[in-house]
Design a protein around this nucleic acid. Structure first.
Lengths: 106, 106
DNA sequence: GACATATGATACCTTTTGGTATCATATTGG
DNA sequence: CCAATATGATACCAAAAGGTATCATATGTC
């Protein structure tokens, strides 16, 4: 069985975090900068960032007294791998079905 | 911008629901049959099934007095499409970076 | 060193989520 | 028709998640 990126799926299943990822797609940002785009406190944003980090969707780089948050390919790649596994699964399903039908026609 | 399958991600971000999908990968099952594999009541399983259905990961087919729950490609395809979008995004990022480096070397 | 700023950490509150218990409804079989 | 079975719906509870307020800590600037 393949490794399922549960933390990544959980992180992606929230509109606010999706918007944050959209912001970070443009450029890396500090938490304060991200919070500037929302009607939310820094502390609130921080919690979302932690979840995104746990899902390996962002990385944090200390730079002086601030921390730059950047998109991380890892989480995306993990979902990509999972999708690849299921594509294979559906193909097999179809092949199995096809074989069954052919068997039935004998 | 692409359509993000939020409901699907939310449905996938839970270990119990992942296990249910695993069971349904083998064969279609009723809620009672699914509940037989867990230390949980039917009502509890039912809630998970509803979320899986909202994420378009399963479909429900009435058959007499029972309802058969079957895997649905739609949710998986939606995630697949989303992944495809991001693959493109990363490619563009790399190209942009490459162009920037080349510009810098002039 | 003192002060401003950027962030982290904690306690606390409210809402959502995961789960149970219970009752109502629909279908099958005698 | 009646009993058994499969399910749906609702009310309710505990735990987790989303969010704020507040305080502590680290870094840059004068």
């Amino acid at each position: 069985m393949i490794q399922i990126p549960t933390q990544t799926f959980k992180a992606l299943g929230d509109p606010t975090r999706q918007q944050i990822l959209g912001l970070l797609a443009d450029r890396e940002l500090t938490i304060a900068q991200v919070a500037g785009h929302f009607d939310m406190t820094r502390a609130g944003v921080k919690k979302h960032m932690k979840i995104l980090e746990e899902g390996r969707l962002i990385t944090v780089t200390p730079k002086g007294r601030e921390r730059l948050n950047t998109l991380n390919r890892d989480g995306f790649d993990m979902v990509s791998d999972w999708v690849g596994y299921f594509d294979q699964f559906w193909d097999d399903k179809l092949n199995a079905l096809k074989a069954l039908v052919e068997e039935d026609m004998k």
